[in-house]
Design a binder for these strands. Structure first.
Lengths: 358, 358
DNA sequence: CAATGCACCAAAACCGATTTCGGTTGTCTT
DNA sequence: AAGACAACCGAAATCGGTTTTGGTGCATTG
């Protein structure tokens, strides 16, 4: 009855039927050289005895553990929160389809991550690795490639060839965002970017520029900024943007957390977000729902991403060549309430802000 | 050089020294019947050859996999976000101290969870389980006990005897919160609770009541409410509380998300949170930081909880009796800006609200 | 001096599967 | 009718450790 006690072995099944262990094994693993009737007899005996192959033994022999690993950076953990549980869910669901599981470890930094990789691989705890938050130049990817470990990256490095990845088309997404804002009537649009060592940051910026240029707008370098991935950084940057002589009537942030800071800044300056100034984030993070007003953002289905990554991983483990698994995920513009047509021109907005500051 | 290729086996080491495999094994596992010199020779050879024991083989023989599992409910995933990554971090760090790892799976509901348990245990993927978000009556705990699986619960069931758990002293925490608010000068204090099937909900409520009664205040049943774990639920409940003839000047929420809804409701009714009405949450969730005003909340160190749970788990696996591992974690009141002395009496507040509603 | 004990280690069994190798049957060619 | 070939399955090797069993050599005991 107990599913825990591992008592009945393949030997028992074989003995019951008076055949060899090997035959039972092959029958169960769909080898072509087993007659259908034998297979049926084996299946029946298996069911009757309640036999469950010990994956422990299987793993020893096969050298595969039916587990894939992921190591999370713990540092700025809170940033990834929203993301995390959904992504893990997608992953583990996807892996589960082939009875694979997910091993989660954490590490404080890049060096620590590599050390964990080494430990997990040396101890044969995993068959492959998932890499998240890919950097423009990512030592993890170098490491895994060098050691011939199957892996799939969520996000791309600068040179995304030769390995498996799933990514958002960041450029396209930000181009879309830019178009949306321009369509709303904005002409002076600022951008707050993330550190350019993050590959997605580079791509989002270039997508943003492409969007402006595509609509015949100039890119004012004064309005293109870059900052770190936290709220106060967004807050500060937005403040100085809005204090410009000709302030932007819309701000696009590379990330929701930054947008949250920007919203705070705008409100503090007495501006109505969504009419005086439009602010758009990126990520579809839940925190956006709690802002005043709720944040309009570019949203990706993280669970879907997880599932896709899982699928690729399984394929890789089965020997499929990595370069065949490179895919973009979809994004949508999630309109909440922080965007709208500009109520004032940039000049008018500048006056309103100046008046208040004095 | 490559730490990945598992080439050198225990046999190689033995052969190199001209001794038997078993001797090498015992030398490495600190058996008492190995002479110090032999042990040293073995150690030297191990280092020289770069031998790393294959845990795969070890696991087969020992029946232990040095892995513990946790299955996350995916449903209300976003609630647990803040929580999740920190907890996982604490866990995996703690387990890592003894080279154990964490296997993460997900399941849609209770039945699904049990199925996952069964799969993981049957496949010998884990040596034990971590249970989170414990329910008052929790089928998972029944299951694990019945099957003799080592586990530790984060949170207690109604009858918390006979198994290992780590929990917040919810009663004490809410008593503290109540005392704090009363100390501020509030007399009419409402409570918005969580579904009572959650065990923590029951305990927090009773702690809250105890706090009031301890200070000689009556518990007005009109002010004791219960709702579901989401923002809009908090929003609705707070609204109806504030529309009472004699509204509360302070509201304690069983959970930050509910508090977030309450803050929104109060602001929408034109009230200044922190002076007109005090609102306190529970969890120390990051979302509280983004609220206007930032939420005062009862905060627990989730990472510490994870580490503690991990420690217990390791002890259990080593055969330590479960009932010896039951511990409370600490909480602190994290004062941000949503609490303060009452500016108005309940009656005055009621008038202010009534005026606005009309 | 024989008997007992102890420290140390070699050899072999074992964990529970998978996989290789080889041997029977039976059918098909020629 | 003999050889070739396929289909099917049994036996044994293997994966890489751990644990049990059984000595051996040396010191201690009566």
């Amino acid at each position: 009855m107990s599913p825990v006690k591992q008592n009945v072995t393949i030997g028992d099944v074989a003995h019951r039927l008076g055949i060899a262990k090997g035959t039972v094994s092959r029958a169960l693993n769909d080898y072509p050289d087993i007659s259908p009737e034998t297979r049926l007899r084996v299946l029946a005996a298996v069911k009757e005895l309640g036999y469950r192959p010990s994956s422990l033994a299987r793993r020893l022999k096969r050298g595969r553990v039916e587990t894939v690993g992921i190591v999370l950076p713990i540092a700025n953990a809170h940033i990834s929160d929203a993301f995390l549980s959904e992504f893990l869910d997608g992953l583990s669901q996807g892996l589960g389809r082939q009875d694979h599981d997910l091993l989660v470890a954490t590490a404080p930094d890049a060096a620590g991550t590599l050390a964990v990789y080494e430990r997990l691989l040396a101890a044969s705890k995993v068959d492959g690795m998932i890499v998240t938050r890919t950097l423009t130049n990512d030592p993890r990817i170098d490491y895994l490639r060098q050691h011939g470990v199957p892996f799939v990256a969520h996000g791309r490095t600068k040179d995304p060839s030769g390995y498996a990845w799933f990514d958002i088309d960041n450029e396209a997404a930000l181009e879309m965002a830019a178009n949306h804002i321009i369509g709303l009537g904005h002409r002076r649009i600022a951008y707050i970017g993330a550190p350019s060592e993050m590959n997605f940051a580079r791509l989002r910026l270039s997508g943003f520029k492409r969007g402006l240029e595509g609509q015949g707008l100039d890119v004012d370098p004064e309005l293109i900024t870059e900052t770190t991935l936290d709220e106060t950084a967004g807050y500060e940057t937005a403040k100085s943007l809005l204090k410009l002589a000709a302030p932007p009537t819309a701000i696009v942030a590379a990330v929701d957390v930054i947008a949250a800071g920007a919203v705070k800044a705008a409100r503090e300056m007495g501006l109505s977000v969504g009419s005086d100034v439009t602010i758009i984030g990126y990520d579809g993070a839940p925190l956006g729902r709690y802002l005043e007003p709720p944040l309009t953002t570019i949203s990706q289905s993280v669970a879907e991403a997880g599932a896709a990554v899982a699928g690729m991983m399984l394929a890789l483990i089965d020997g499929s060549p990595a370069h065949q698994h490179q895919r973009f995920g979809d994004v949508t513009l999630l309109r909440r309430a922080s965007d709208g047509p500009p109520r004032l021109t940039s000049a008018e907005l500048g006056k309103k802000i100046a008046k208040r500051v004095i």
